[in-house]
Amino acid sequence: MPSGRALAHVPASNPPSPTRRVDLKTKLLTGFVVCTNVLGNFSMSWGMKHQNAVLGLSPIAYIRLIFTPWVLLGTALLILWLLSRMTLLGWADLSYVLPATSIGYVLSAVLGKVFFGEQVTWERWLGTGFIVIGIVCVGLTAANTTKRETAG
């Protein structure tokens, strides 16, 4: 009869534990939140820059602008961002979500440089470095410290 220790042996090919699966889903959703935010803001910015619309106090100009393709895409992406971020806040700590999703600041700066030709100074590169270090630090901690790991 095998001993308890032998039964406890877990082969490397075993499926990941529920906690690991939840952790992976949380990280994937974090990536989705970042992507929808960055692409949503980029679409909005692209649409605004290419419309050359003069926005005054009249709401008609704003409504007309919303129904242009890029701004409409940006709005849809930002609605997705809001929904996915709310879901993520149910799965992970607020103190985890805030720093972990701040890579969006860096990606927005990169998109701004590539597509809009914006200047990236050494202060911005230093800031990027600080953000990456912060994300690595937070990524090493448990995503949910208040229990209830129900990511589906």
Binding site: S102, E123, G127, I131, G134, I135, V138, T141
Partner: peptide, 20 residues
């Protein structure tokens, strides 16, 4: 914990620098 505090403060400094 200390690691998460360090991360949050590092991100805050980083965002401030990005805005310069």
């Amino acid at each position: 914990g200390a690691l998460r505090w360090a991360g949050a403060l590092s991100v805050a400094c980083g965002v401030a620098l990005l805005a310069m």
